[in-house]
Amino acid sequence: MTNASSPVLQGSLRAPPGVALGGFADRIGAPALKAAATSWFVVAVLGQLLFVAYVIGFYGRAALQGRFEAWNKVLPHGYVAGDTFGNLVVSLHLAFATVVIVGGALQLMPAVRRVAPAFHRWNGRIYLASVLLMSVGGLVMVWTRGTVGDLSQHVAISINALLIIAFAGMAFRHALARRIDLHRRWALRLFLVVGGVWFFRIGLMAWIVVNRGPVGFDPKTFAGPFLTFLAFAQYVLPLAVLELYLRAQAGRGSLQRVAVAGGLFALTLLTAGGIVAASMIMWLPRL
Rank of each mutant, 00 (worst) to 15 (best):
residue 112 V to K: 00
residue 113 R to C: 08
residue 113 R to E: 05
residue 115 V to T: 10
residue 116 A to T: 06
residue 117 P to G: 04
residue 119 F to T: 07
residue 122 W to C: 02
residue 122 W to I: 05
residue 123 N to G: 15
residue 126 I to S: 10
residue 127 Y to W: 15
residue 128 L to G: 02
residue 130 S to Q: 02
residue 130 S to C: 10
residue 131 V to D: 00
residue 132 L to P: 00
residue 134 M to T: 05
residue 135 S to D: 00
residue 138 G to F: 01
residue 141 M to F: 11
residue 142 V to D: 01
residue 148 V to K: 14
residue 150 D to K: 13
residue 153 Q to V: 09
residue 154 H to W: 13
residue 154 H to T: 06
residue 158 S to L: 06
residue 158 S to N: 03
residue 160 N to V: 03
residue 160 N to W: 04
residue 160 N to C: 11
residue 162 L to C: 05
residue 164 I to H: 01
residue 166 A to P: 04
residue 167 F to V: 09
residue 168 A to E: 10
residue 172 F to C: 01
residue 173 R to T: 09
residue 174 H to T: 13
residue 177 A to W: 09
residue 179 R to K: 12
residue 183 H to V: 05
residue 185 R to C: 00
residue 190 L to N: 11
residue 191 F to Y: 15
residue 192 L to V: 08
residue 196 G to L: 08
residue 198 W to N: 06
residue 198 W to L: 11
residue 199 F to L: 02
residue 203 G to K: 08
residue 203 G to H: 09
residue 206 A to T: 14
residue 207 W to R: 12
residue 211 N to T: 10
residue 213 G to E: 00
residue 213 G to R: 00
residue 218 D to G: 01
residue 219 P to S: 03
residue 223 A to L: 01
residue 223 A to M: 12
residue 225 P to V: 12
residue 226 F to H: 07
residue 228 T to V: 15
residue 230 L to Q: 11
residue 230 L to Y: 03
